[in-house]
Write a protein that binds this DNA or RNA. Sequence first.
DNA 1: CAAGAGATCATCT
DNA 2: GATGATCTCTTGA
Length: 193
Amino acid sequence: MKLPRGFYEQSTVEVAKQLLGNYLVRRHPDGDLIGRIVETEAYVGPHDLACHAARGRTKRTEVMFGPAGHAYVYFIYGFYHMLNFVTEAEDYPAAVLIRAVEPIDGVAAMKKRRRSDSLRDLASGPGKLCQAFAIDRSLNGIDLCGDTLWVAERGEAAPKIKSAKRVGVDYAGRWKDKRYRFFVRDSAFVSRG
DNA sequence: CAAGAGATCATCT
DNA sequence: GATGATCTCTTGA
């Protein structure tokens, strides 16, 4: 049911693709929140100029250098949090950004946090998703094999997926055009096309 | 609809 | 002191 650590130890691109269609589960005092993962991006290691770890091991990127299967949560633009899953071997800094989910359970609480009634607007973007799921830096470094935040394995077959360039990484030189963004082909809940 | 600006702060130079 | 793995609102057609 719960994806094991071994899942996250695979190559980052594999993890990013295979996460699609699985269920993000957040245990929260006000009720469990569940969403079907429909969009991800891979940040593949120290050479990837779009990856924060390309600038070395710092306080912020420390978690990415740790073992796979932990959450990397950071704060950006003064407003938003981003949720990532650490992948691959220890000391190899890579992660998958969770960009969008389809709300499945705990929808009322998500609407309240997002101050929106539109189902499609609750978690169709990395910042929105963190707001809807009450994810902030207090979850940075948390073990995805624990009982606060984890991914439940889908029961059905893998969805059809498409790839595209990553968003918001124009500064990343030749890495900016890599097709490291993956999303469920027919989902209405992705952040863009 | 598309494009642009503004919001606001942790992190690194 | 600059900037960013974003979102929302406003503007102008």
